[in-house]
């Protein structure tokens, strides 16, 4: 249960910056983002939850959006990253490196401690 909670919190923390990182390479609509996130796996609990996330990113000034109509299809809302969003994505990429290194160092110590306790 504790692990599920930690994973949930972790996912919630990184999903916004991950969306910004994807948008760095060009505008996308919701389903496109969902599919790219699904390719790496495990970041979205369900597809529809991306829209509140995108709205929050827009309210924070990291993305803008506009509805576009393509031929006979239903309008799609395309999201594009702002300069503030790019800076946020860059900060995240930098911090993620330090973060994963610190956590990896801690996790590497665990098997050694467990082995020591078993031999006592």
């Amino acid at each position: 249960m504790a692990q599920n909670t930690a994973s949930t919190q972790l996912r919630r923390g990184v999903i916004g910056p991950c969306i910004l990182v994807l948008l760095c390479s060009g505008p996308r609509y919701g389903l496109q983002l969902v599919r790219e996130l699904d390719e790496v796996g495990g970041l979205l609990t369900s597809q529809g939850t991306i829209y509140p996330l995108l709205n929050r990113l827009q309210e924070s000034g990291f993305v803008t959006s506009q509805w576009e109509v393509e031929s006979d299809e239903r309008p799609k809302r395309y999201y594009q990253i702002t300069q503030a969003g790019r800076e946020e994505a860059e900060t995240f990429k930098r911090d993620w490196g330090h973060f994963t290194q610190s956590v990896a160092t801690l996790l590497d110590q665990l098997p050694t401690k467990n082995t020591d306790e078993e031999t006592k």
């Binding site: 919701g30 597809q47 299809e73 239903r74 809302r77």
Partner: peptide
């Protein structure tokens, strides 16, 4: 509108 657009694209 976004949900309907999503379903339409799916």
């Amino acid at each position: 509108a976004e949900i309907l657009s999503h379903i339409s694209a799916l």
